[in-house]
Design a binder for these strands. Structure first.
Length: 304
DNA sequence: TAACCGACCTGATGGC
DNA sequence: TGCCATCAGGTCGGTT
């Protein structure tokens, strides 16, 4: 379940390998991995083959590799989203096929020589595309790993993430106060704040002592600011530990797992004691998924 | 327009 | 042992 820390680990791992590399060949094993590329497999391969990649950038859970200009055309990038189970793996040129391999880019790097970038994805919720780059709304760099104020058109609706220097805390606090939706729903809304998924939403709400179903407009500005601070803290801790791995679904570019699963306080701990007060963590259904929280530390505010 | 919900997808797991 | 149901959840489009 790659969320911001996991995607950032992947981005940072890929950056040295893809920056300056030329795409020598593209092999698509499964067209479902290109659902974001509406023009189809042949167009994807034709647009990408022979192009040079300029770096590895990320906003929220979206990754992209800007491409060197191709004639007079608009600036473009390879856009990727890992979905639920996507992996981007660096392998020696010609290495054996990976389980669930969907797309392989053969790269020629001026320093590292030939290597393969493999996109593998069990559940095929992730996908790649060659996408046009468009200007950011605020003129600031588009995300981590790039100084250009350009981001893929398909990621235009995605808000900045809380670790982005250009993230606007005030806009987040205002968005929280604007809606009656459950606060967890707001945290998962990638148009308000990006990079947070089910795991880190539960963890941040546990840290902030907020019930996941608290109506957002019942949360004071000060409390919303504290929640944002807890979001940042949990994301940074997870990043420092290499992300959260429950199984083989999330690994870095070398196939290694992260360690943050050992540090979780609420997510996946239903029935086990709250690390703060000892009361069993509750697990409740939440829009076709699950929320985990402490019924003592995270109480719903009194009505009225 | 905001809020909500189901579809998409595969593999692991548990119950019978 | 084998079959079936359930669960995991990010994003997007359709519905209310």
């Amino acid at each position: 379940m790659p969320e911001l820390p996991e995607v950032e680990v992947v981005r940072a791992g890929l950056a040295p390998a893809v920056t300056g590399a030329t795409v020598a060949a593209v092999v698509v094993d499964d067209a479902r991995a290109l659902t974001r590329h509406a023009a189809g497999v042949a167009d994807f391969c034709a647009r990408l083959t022979g192009r040079r990649m300029l770096g590895a950038a990320r906003r929220g859970k979206f990754l992209w590799f800007p491409l060197a200009p191709d004639g007079e055309g608009a600036p473009e990038a390879v856009l990727g989203h890992l979905g639920m189970s996507g992996q981007m793996l660096l392998r020696a040129a010609g290495a054996d096929r990976e389980r669930h391999e969907r797309v392989r880019l053969s790269l020629d790097h001026p320093l590292h020589g030939e290597l393969d970038l493999v996109f593998a994805d069990q559940r095929t919720f992730g996908s790649l595309a060659v996408d046009a780059l468009v200007p950011t709304d605020d003129g600031e760099p588009a995300g981590r790993g790039t100084l250009d104020p350009l981001l893929p058109a398909q990621a235009r609706h995605i808000a900045r993430d809380p670790l982005d220097p250009a993230f606007r805390d005030r806009a987040f606090v205002a968005a929280v106060s604007r809606t009656r939706s459950a606060i967890k729903r707001v945290l998962l809304d990638q148009g308000v704040v990006s990079g947070i998924g089910n795991i880190y939403a539960d963890e941040a709400l546990w840290s902030a002592r907020l019930h996941p179903e608290t109506p957002s407009d019942a949360i004071s500005s000060r409390r919303a600011g504290r929640l944002l601070a807890e979001v940042r803290a949990v994301l940074e801790r997870a990043l420092a530990e290499g992300g959260t791995s429950f199984d083989a679904q999330y690994v870095n570019v070398n196939g290694q797992a992260g360690y943050f699963a050992h540090s979780l306080n609420a997510y996946g701990r239903g029935g086990r004691p709250c690390p703060r007060c000892g009361r069993p963590i509750e697990r409740i259904a939440f829009t076709n998924r699950a929320s985990h929280f402490c019924p003592r530390c995270q109480r719903m505010p009194e009505a009225g």
